[in-house]
Amino acid sequence: MMNDQARNLRARVRGERFNRKAAQTIAVISGKGGVGKSNIALNLSIMLSQHRKKVLLFDLDIGMGNIDILVGNQARYTIADYFLNDIPFEQIIQNGPEGLKYIAGGSGLEGAISLDNDRVNQLLDHIHTFFYDYDYFIFDMGAGISEDLVLFLSSVQDIIVVVTPEPTSIMDAYSAMKILTINDAHSNFHLLGNRMKNEKESNAVLMRLQKAVYQFLQKDSNLIGFLPEDSIISTAVKRQIPFVLLNPKSYAAKQINIITQVFLSTNLNESKIKNNTSFIEKLKIVLFRK
């Protein structure tokens, strides 16, 4: 049955969808946990949706995800159900606020699910089927960079690296970028500060990291903004309401809107059309080698 389903999906992909523009792929990562990565991924996704973009947010912190918690919704199915119980991919796509679609990571499992090659290939197969239905695919990754996810992340066009002022966060972010660079990732790195006192502190932290990445890895990276240490963010988490909806006029919401504009930029998107082939071609290799 699974083979028939995969065959039908590939047939669908080979059809009318190749005539449509592919989604832009963005991964949100951090070198360590607890830096607010999921909150940023969620609020960025909602802000893009508010700009009338079709967004699918993936919580890929499988077994330990919290996107559904942050939106105050109990997902009927999660990506854990997809892998463990063979729930069809389209059934794990949930409705979020402001027209956002999302896939919950699942929580409360006895152990995290490893994304080995077979599982990554299966996931990419189904992702490709929906690749032309959305403007953005946003992947909220688990903390750190596992060996299993290097190939996946190397296919993504844009990677947002979330960094806090703590030295451990900065070093772990550098390590994550180093692993991806060594493994020939052609993604664009975007550095985003979180829990910063102000813009001055954010620039100091991010520029130091940017300089190290360029000097030792010969890799460019962009500074795209920061989020402050704002009480509205912690309040929003407690109330399970995304902060851009709880208080759209807050400083945090205004800052996430500035970051959103980077990915709505005409020039950026035009340049990404040429680079779309990186993610798409790697998906094709997975699909058509079977």
Rank of each mutant, 00 (worst) to 15 (best):
L56I: 07
L56V: 07
F58M: 09
D59E: 08
L60Y: 04
L60R: 09
L60M: 14
D61K: 09
I62L: 15
I62H: 12
I62A: 14
I62G: 14
G63V: 08
G63N: 02
G63C: 12
G63H: 07
M64K: 14
G65W: 11
G65F: 13
N66I: 14
D68E: 04
L70S: 04
V71L: 04
N73E: 15
A75L: 06
R76S: 14
T78F: 06
T78N: 05
T78E: 01
I79T: 05
I79M: 07
A80R: 03
D81Y: 08
D81H: 15
Y82E: 09
Y82C: 14
Y82L: 11
F83A: 05
L84A: 11
N85C: 12
N85Q: 15
D86Q: 15
D86V: 11
D86C: 09
I87N: 10
I87D: 07
I87T: 13
I87V: 15
P88W: 09
P88Y: 10
F89R: 10
F89D: 12
E90C: 05
E90Y: 13
E90P: 06
I92H: 07
I92S: 08
I93N: 05
I93A: 06
I93F: 10
Q94L: 11
Q94T: 14
Q94A: 12
N95H: 15
G96L: 08
G96D: 09
G96W: 13
G96Y: 11
E98T: 12
G99W: 03
G99F: 09
L100N: 12
L100S: 13
L100H: 15
L100Q: 13
K101R: 15
Y102L: 11
Y102P: 13
I103S: 05
A104Y: 06
A104M: 02
A104L: 03
A104N: 02
G105V: 04
G105E: 01
G105D: 01
G105W: 02
G106C: 07
G106P: 13
S107A: 11
S107D: 06
L109T: 00
L109D: 00
L109Q: 00
E110R: 00
G111C: 03
G111W: 00
A112Q: 01
A112E: 01
A112D: 01
I113W: 00
I113Q: 02
I113S: 00
S114T: 05
S114R: 06
S114C: 01
S114G: 02
L115W: 02
L115M: 12
D116K: 05
D116N: 13
D116Q: 03
D116H: 08
D116S: 05
N117H: 13
N117P: 09
N117A: 12
N117G: 06
D118Q: 09
D118K: 15
R119D: 01
R119A: 00
R119H: 00
V120D: 00
V120Y: 04
N121H: 11
N121R: 10
N121C: 04
